[in-house]
Amino acid sequence: MARAQAAGTMGSVVVALTVNDERRRLDLDSRVTLLDALREHLHLTGTKKGCDHGHCGACTVLVNGVRINACLSLAAMHDGDVVTTIEGLGRPDRLHPVQAAFIAHDAFQCGYCTPGQICSAVAVLAEVEAGVPSHATGDLTAPVTLDTSELRERMSANICRCGAYSNIAEAVADVAGRS
């Protein structure tokens, strides 16, 4: 207990990130997670904090093109990394195809898990392309095809308590089918 009191300003870090194509430099407490760096320091609040413990997926972002939970990563660990958040995928007047499909299929209700679902879906399409297997993959050595069981398994990292799964699966399949 004494250490925390005595700590004072110990543990600050300088982090340079590229977020949504913009170079950002932050002076942070070393304890700041990537999630809080985005939300509280860069005011990119599209990335959501649902649990802060890696149990819900609402904080999913793309780092160097790969999806991770921003809540379980220190900002300091991402010095030099390229981060894409929901704000970087599209804007209300210029939607990413997955964002547009979510609207078309009503693939959300409250909207709080939605940015994470969409970031995850974008990453899933790339993972399938790259041949990353999943729990639902039949033959490990054959090329992966994104059937519904593959899609549902891969999206299972993102909890939606409003229960839009059935529509989310159709929205993502819609985009996958087009690409």
Partner: peptide, 15 residues
């Protein structure tokens, strides 16, 4: 491979 993909999630396995 099977055991790994049975664990956690895509996000966590990437990290």
């Amino acid at each position: 491979a099977r055991a790994i993909v049975a664990g956690a999630t895509g996000q966590l396995r990437n990290k």
